Simulated assay, not measured.
Amino acid sequence: MLADEKLKRINELANKSKGEGLNKAEKTEQQELRQEYLKNVRKSFKNQLKGMTVVDPNGKDVTPKKLKEMQENEKKH
């Protein structure tokens, strides 16, 4: 998870951008923080998927093959 300080800074930069605007260094910082945030969101989402099983109304496991492969690869590591 992203540190609270970084999330706070992302919000500060967003508010400043809407108001007075950002200088070049702040724009670069904002992009770097956004990329780090998105990386963490994607990682968290993948971890949630790895623990998921899809079951149809009849109780049959219909988890997609790609997800099963990802889960198997995780078990090997």
Rank of each mutant, 00 (worst) to 15 (best):
Pro64Met: 06
Ala25Tyr: 10
Val41Gly: 11
Lys8Asp: 02
Gln48Cys: 11
Glu5Gln: 15
Lys16Asn: 04
Lys66Cys: 04
Asp56Gly: 00
Pro57Gln: 04
Lys6Glu: 06
Leu33Val: 07
Tyr37Asn: 14
Glu32Trp: 11
Gly51Phe: 00
Val62Ile: 09
Gln35Tyr: 07
Lys16Pro: 09
Leu49Pro: 00
Glu32Gln: 14
Lys18Thr: 15
Gly59Gln: 04
Gly51Glu: 02
Ala25Leu: 14
His77Met: 05
Lys75Cys: 01
Lys43Thr: 11
Asn11Lys: 06
Asn58Ile: 00
Gln30Trp: 14
Lys76Cys: 01
Met52Phe: 09
Leu38Asp: 11
Pro64Val: 04
Ala14Tyr: 02
Leu7Ser: 07
Ser44Asn: 15
Ile10Cys: 00
Glu29Trp: 02
Leu22Tyr: 07
Val62His: 03
Thr53Asp: 05
Asn58Gln: 03
Lys16Thr: 06
Glu5Val: 07
Glu29Ser: 10
Gln48Ile: 15
Glu29Cys: 03
Lys65Gln: 05
Glu74Asn: 06
Asp4Phe: 02
Glu74His: 06
Ser44Pro: 09
Glu20Val: 12
Asp4Tyr: 03
Lys18Ala: 15
Glu72Gly: 13
Leu49Asn: 14
Asp4Pro: 04
Arg42Lys: 14
Glu36Asp: 12
Glu36Ala: 10
Leu7Asn: 08
Ile10Tyr: 00
Val62Asp: 06
Arg42Asp: 13
Lys27Trp: 04
Leu38Ala: 15
Gln48Asp: 05
Asn73Leu: 08
Gly21Asn: 08
Phe45Arg: 11
Lys18Asp: 15
Val55Met: 05
Lys39Thr: 12
Leu2Ala: 13
Lys76Phe: 01
Glu5Asp: 13
Lys68Gln: 06
Leu22Lys: 08
Glu29Gly: 08
Thr63Phe: 02
Gln71Glu: 14
Leu13His: 10
Glu69Val: 04
Leu33Lys: 01
Met1Asp: 08
Lys43Met: 15
Lys76Ile: 09
Glu36Ile: 07
Leu7Glu: 05
Gln30Ala: 14
Val55Pro: 02
Val62Phe: 03
Leu33Gln: 04
Lys60Ser: 12
Gln48Trp: 11
Lys24Cys: 03
Glu26Tyr: 13
Lys50Leu: 08
Ser17Cys: 15
Lys24Pro: 08
Glu26Arg: 03
Ala14Leu: 00
Leu13Val: 06
Asn40Glu: 06
Asn40Phe: 00
Ala14Arg: 00
Asn73Arg: 09
Arg42Pro: 10
Asn47Leu: 11
Pro57Cys: 01
Pro57Phe: 01
Lys27Val: 12
Leu7Thr: 03
Leu38Tyr: 11
Glu72Phe: 13
Val62Gln: 06
Ala25Glu: 14
Glu26Gly: 01
Asn40His: 02
Pro64Glu: 10
Asp4Leu: 09
Met70Ala: 12
Leu67Tyr: 00
Asp4Gly: 13
Ala25Lys: 10
Gln71Thr: 10
Glu69Lys: 12
Pro64Ser: 07
Arg42Ile: 14
Arg34Gln: 15
Gln30Met: 14
Glu36Lys: 06
Lys46Ala: 13
Asn15Leu: 12
Gly21Trp: 01
Lys8Pro: 01
Glu32Arg: 13
Met1Tyr: 06
Leu67Ala: 05
Glu29His: 09
Lys65Asn: 10
Ser44His: 14
Asn23Ala: 05
Ala25Thr: 12
Lys18Gln: 15
Gln48Met: 13
Asn23Pro: 04
Leu49Arg: 12
Gly21Ala: 02
